[in-house]
Design a protein around this nucleic acid. Structure first.
Lengths: 338, 338
DNA sequence: GGATGTCGATAAATCGATTTAATACTGTTT
DNA sequence: AAACAGTATTAAATCGATTTATCGACATCC
């Protein structure tokens, strides 16, 4: 019982493949195919559950109904959650997702982009690493719909979804200041991407307004958590005079908490803590950690909506749009509460 | 500058498409194509960076070089990590992954299987929900490579990778008993799948050996965490006499900790805690929670190795294999340490 | 010299759809 | 009656690969 092809359907019903194809693609009216024929074909197709072979369809039409999703690390809860939501919406709209993790590695990303290209994906959703501008530009120039998220590339003109990073850290830092903290450190990954720079800038701006000194520690990104935890621990050990610390990402935050725990530092008595991104670890730590929560649903929703729009409206001449979303500061007991 | 096709290559070199195809597929020798021709073609192909259109290839050969991956929830850290590792190995072997979350919903899973089937995936990796036996059986009968993991279906004969669930909980429960705990509760999702039943059985067996009473609480699975946390809190409130609690999955564990925190229960003084699965939340909770760690790398590795084997050896008559992996009990300070 | 075989290469069929261009047929106009 | 215009349908080309079957030329054998 092998799969039926459109030719089988046509033969069985004594009509041509063309007729069947037109009917299945809703062009019956336009092609003025008789009502009786349309009904006969529809009925039979439903009956045997015929589905066109998507490969053949893709080959002919050039559309693959596939979206390529590239994130930094799919096992990071932030990206995993977004992927999950995007996946759901994509499937509902007849698109499937193929995904991969870039590890923020430019060369790997380049390879992956070219792989996606070979696979004829219809559109790209990318959290781009540094140094990938040219590759993305050439995608865009080739007329490919590309939506960036989490960060953007200033010199590439394409759609992107971001959060208000600068204001988020500014606001959170102000919060610490208002609680009376004066020696506030900022620990983050060494990284020059828009979102990370903006976060750092927000921190600096808040401190600057109050005339406070800044303490920034940049950690090299590493797959091995121990190599993130160790330098944080060393930094905290060396700077005993700090009264608060701000972690720039969820991953740094988690490793930072590990360091804090290992050093036996008491939160918030010895040190107040705040982190970018929010997830279980922060909610369940004791005391629970104040964190900047990104609007995951809104991000995923915006991303897929923008991309689907591009995919459906063939006119490529809509100017690229950027959406900036707000974050929430979830205040918990990791700092003085007055 | 559109993509070159094999016809373009052939025309340019004044040879036939057939010749080019044979050479590109390494059948030059077998088809005794002249050394000179082979070199000329190779050189030109490298030069222009020609890559065969995978769609056309798939259409002709029937292979799509795609693996379908279905997990319960891709945003769960356990599944996300495994997906990440599988993805890496798959790409290295020329396969791409398309994935989706089943939510443990049989109907949704059925839809997804048929979608994967339509898409002509070459193989399936599935953490199956209940009631999906027949669908999977018919896949297997159709000669599709299917590897199950995390749990299996007793009546379906196909490859699967699992951990030793029964021994894991048995062993962990024994650990609690040896520490002197007598009133040990087991909280889990209401679920009749092999892995969950085995876990429960391990708990019962250990208690039985010591003649202790069992306290089992089953929670209905829900997307909304609050509807998991609430019944756990209610259960703990009602059974104040418990001295230890065993959570059957990471998700139940995380929600359980939330309940414990909200109720102000002290760990391990008021209540000892142990959980299946290990992740950041358990390591960073204070005190850190003893947990059964699944060997994520080994699981992912076994899964993809078994599947790639199936895909490469066309003989479908290898009897199906099952691999059972060991877990580690990571003992931490969430129970008396003697 | 005709049959047989080998070597090197290719024309044509195929996968399963979409789409273009063409074909009958009917009815209307001039 | 020739020309034209719709109407309903379809044959054939196309997408870009793989694969089967064939072909020409030249050497070998009886």
């Amino acid at each position: 019982m092998k799969k039926l092809s459109i030719a089988d359907i046509a033969k069985h019903l004594h009509v041509s493949k063309t007729t069947v194809s037109f009917i299945l693609n809703g062009r019956a009216q336009e092609k003025r195919i008789g009502r009786e024929v349309v009904e006969r074909v529809q009925k039979f197709v439903d009956e045997v559950g015929y589905k066109p072979n998507p490969l053949a369809k893709s080959l002919r039409t050039g559309k693959s109904n596939t979206i390529g999703l590239m994130v930094e690390d799919i096992s990071n809860p932030f990206f995993a959650s977004i992927a999950r939501l995007i996946e759901d919406r994509a499937y509902k709209n007849g698109y499937k997702i193929i995904y991969c993790s870039t590890d923020n590695d430019t060369a790997k990303t380049r390879d992956l982009i070219s792989m996606f290209r070979d696979r004829h994906v219809d559109g790209y959703i990318i959290a781009p690493p540094e140094g990938i501008e040219d590759d993305i530009s050439s995608l865009v120039k080739a007329g490919m719909p590309v939506v960036l998220f989490d960060r953007h590339l200033p010199n590439v003109s394409t759609d992107f979804i971001e959060i208000d990073n600068l204001f988020s850290t500014y606001n959170a830092t102000r919060h610490l200041i208002q609680q009376g903290y004066k020696k506030i450190a900022y620990i983050t990954f060494a990284n020059n991407q828009t979102h990370m720079l903006a976060r750092l800038e927000g921190y600096h701006r808040a401190l600057g307004e109050s005339g406070y000194e800044s303490f920034v520690k940049e950690i090299d990104f590493n797959q091995n958590d121990d190599l993130i935890t160790a330098p944080i621990a060393a930094f905290l050990k060396k700077n005993k005079n700090l009264d608060a610390v701000f972690f720039g990402t969820n991953h740094v935050g988690a490793c930072g908490l590990k360091a804090i725990t290992e050093l036996g530092i008491k939160v918030p008595t010895d040190l107040a803590v705040i982190s970018f991104d929010d997830y279980d670890v922060f909610k369940l730590f004791s005391p629970p950690i104040t964190a900047i929560a990104q609007p995951i649903e809104a991000i995923a929703d915006s991303v897929i909506t923008v991309l689907l729009n591009r995919l459906n409206t063939s006119s490529q001449h809509i100017s690229s749009q950027s959406i900036i979303l707000k974050t929430d500061l979830n205040i918990r007991r990791s700092s003085k509460t007055e």
